Computed example of a mutant assay.
Amino acid sequence: MTDSSQNSLIQRLPKAELHLHIEGSFEPELMMQLAARNRIDLRFKTLDEAKAAYNFSNLQEFLDLYYEGMQVLRTEEDFHDLTWAYLQRAAQDNVRHVEMFFDPQAHTERGVPFGVVTEGILAALARGEKELGVTSYLILSFLRHLSEDDGFALLKESEGWHDRFVGVGLDSSEMGHPPLKFERLYKRCREMGFKLCMHAGEEGPPAYVREALIEIGVDRIDHGNRSMEDPALIQILKDTQTPLTNCPLSNLSLCVINDLKDSPVKAQLEAGLLVTVNSDDPAYFGGYIARNYEKTAEALGLSDAQLITLAHNSFTASFLPEAGKQKHLAAIDAAVA
């Protein structure tokens, strides 16, 4: 069990969050409020029913709920309120920088214009930097259960905002949708100067991580748990210091692991990998970033030094310029001095 001094350390540590889906921070209270505001009927009629729906046993059940809840997001104000709620909560956990995924295809395919989604989120991110001191980068995610051509269509639709996001990601159902399905799309995004992220090795095999890392050439692997089944892949990740954005409570909620003691975070630290801890979809998976640190430290017996390394890694693995990274790393050192 983490003691109060270790929890205090976790709270003091400045942190970056690198694996956060803004739609996954949709707390049931806000979902019900927006449903009422936009006069949308949900299948759950009370807050208690909505909270009960947040219990699921696998990735697909979660995704079904995730997309169902999104239907209440209609206006720029809705997307602002969703993002602002997350930023306020993240600031309480001493998050200083966030690199946030958003899923425009989940909104455009139900008739919400790309600009409505993006401008609402961007307005809240600007407010977060001004009022909370939380800096941010936006990452446009492609939905991997859709086609590569759909991804190219989104890339074209988003042209007017290309200077407003730092990179692209790939999320949603992993099995049956290997990284190479999107090889041409990712090549084009690389040519355009975007940073490349990709979910791989959450449910998919180590081969998916290899494809993402070696054949696609991504800058960051999201999840990457199953890398630990392949010693040669572990060595490549160590040699290249390609970041892994681990999400322990998410893994537990989706039964990627059966117990937090099975989380690979400690083994990845001990193997010299550039692993980070993040919340993924915190409204659905039982906790924001500090709780992920606390519960993982408790389950794995992480030392104070390992917790400090995780905080360091969160900035080292970010897409911030070097001067920005060094500023935050110095702030960590000051916090633990």
Rank of each mutant, 00 (worst) to 15 (best):
15 K>P: 04
20 L>W: 04
25 S>D: 07
26 F>Y: 09
31 M>K: 14
32 M>P: 01
33 Q>S: 15
34 L>N: 12
43 R>M: 08
43 R>D: 14
49 E>K: 07
53 A>Q: 13
54 Y>I: 11
55 N>T: 13
61 E>R: 13
68 E>S: 10
68 E>Q: 13
72 V>T: 11
75 T>C: 02
75 T>D: 01
79 F>A: 09
80 H>F: 15
89 R>G: 04
100 M>A: 11
102 F>Q: 06
119 E>I: 04
121 I>Q: 13
131 E>S: 12
138 L>T: 00
140 L>S: 13
142 F>D: 08
144 R>V: 13
145 H>P: 05
146 L>K: 13
154 L>A: 04
163 D>L: 10
166 V>N: 05
169 G>T: 04
170 L>F: 11
173 S>R: 15
175 M>H: 02
177 H>D: 09
177 H>M: 06
181 K>I: 05
193 G>W: 03
194 F>I: 05
196 L>R: 08
197 C>K: 05
200 A>C: 09
204 G>K: 06
205 P>H: 03
210 R>Q: 05
217 G>T: 09
218 V>W: 06
223 H>S: 01
228 M>H: 01
229 E>R: 14
233 L>D: 07
235 Q>T: 14
243 P>G: 03
253 S>Y: 01
254 L>F: 02
259 D>G: 07
265 V>Y: 00
272 G>Y: 08
275 V>C: 07
282 P>Q: 08
284 Y>A: 10
288 Y>E: 04
289 I>W: 09
297 A>M: 02
297 A>R: 00
311 A>V: 03
311 A>L: 03
316 T>G: 01
319 F>C: 09
322 E>A: 09
326 Q>L: 12
331 A>D: 15
336 V>Y: 04
337 A>M: 03
